[in-house]
Design a protein around this nucleic acid. Sequence first.
RNA 1: CGGGACGUGGUGUAACGGCUAACAUACCUGUUUUGGGUACAGGUGACUCCGGGUUCGAAUCCCGGCGUCCCGACCA
Length: 414
Amino acid sequence: MLQSQLFGKTRKEAPSDEVAKNAKLLIRAGYIDKLQAGVYTYLPLGFRVLKKIEAIIREEMDAAGGQEILMPSLHPKDNWETTGRWDSMDDLYKVQDSSGRENALGPTHEEVVVPLAKQFVFSYKDLPLALYQIQNKFRMELRAKSGILRGREFIMKDLYSFHRDEADLAAYYEKMKGVYKRVFERMGIGAVTHLTFASGGSFAKYSHEFQTVTPAGEDTIHVCTKCGIAINQEVVADQKACPECGSDELTQEKAIEVGNIFELKTKYSAPFNLTYKDEEGKDQPVIMGCYGIGLGRLMGTIVEVLADEKGIVWPEEVSPFQVHLIDLSGKNEELKKEVQDVYEKLSAAGVAVLFDDRDLRAGEKFADADLLGISMRAVVSEKSLAAGGVEVKYRAEQEGKIVSKEEFFKLFVR
RNA sequence: CGGGACGUGGUGUAACGGCUAACAUACCUGUUUUGGGUACAGGUGACUCCGGGUUCGAAUCCCGGCGUCCCGACCA
């Protein structure tokens, strides 16, 4: 991709109405644009990152036996009345069409996925089952805030699991803890993301959240210094010690919830009467769990946690491009050909490269490269050629190094 | 939804109730420059959020609305 052609430009200053670091940097770097409070457009760069995050999550969900589907956002009122949430859910968006028919804009999909499962789940042989989707959700937040961290429309992965009994649910639930842990490790925030005990509501003792420690967080958690497990503020009141290892050495931190897992049991299968026949031919209720990850929030969290004073720092797996190639040839036509050649070879090899071909000064290009935060920067210039080839610098590191062109291309061989 | 702050070219800011709403940046033309946001010249771009009111005169004062952000309550 030629940077001169890229839709979206960097800017020196963030809009005055953005305070959150994630929104300031993502807007300045041209990743997102705000349409209204809590509603953002993903520009090409931002959409690339989103797709990277999505790909990682999809890979992990598929590996965990999930089958991907796509449910609608427009939900008939009836389904929401069946569960009682048409009236009880304060942040439900309700829309009325010109015929007077009412719908909800989906904030979560139990009301759709349970009736769906009812179409195909009849027997214990049909269980267990795990369905998931990655899709836009709508919630009328009383107050959208913190940039991309709390929006009114946001992209979420929601997986629903169906089981024949609580033991099977418990086993799957445990498995998902590990799956989630791996997801956040791949996002580069594993070290500061803690499995957190949270309130389970009326039907389970606990649910679990995955909380990433950052000053931008809006939750307070208490992290066990021994085992790294955390307890949510709401739970810590009657649970003073770590439920995992028993230690009472807890440190208080601000954190943002990037994922949660929840034992639903029969909360939603019951109102829709979702049952299956066991080996004796008797009807049994289907036991459910649900598992969510907010993708946009995750993207914002990565920015919050990893960015430095110069700009965004993407981990390799979510970087919008594999390499940011900087052309510093200036008026040197021969050198320009050299850089062009590097760009074409990389592209031909299938490497995702952003090529800064713009007619700008070096300082400006470096400043932009730091702001964009692509994980690897490569410079071809008189200076680099004189020193042996290509200067490679990783965004997360301070110093670059010169490698020969051959070595440089080898970096991309998988 | 309660409390607070704010709304001026794309962006960031300035302007006592009084000249043609100023500056920077971005953008366009040209020259210049090329390893950490280059310099110069010229140029485009604003019904000062919307609607009322006060006044000889409103970006500025008053009322109402809308919007944005922050704090709180609520929440992936």
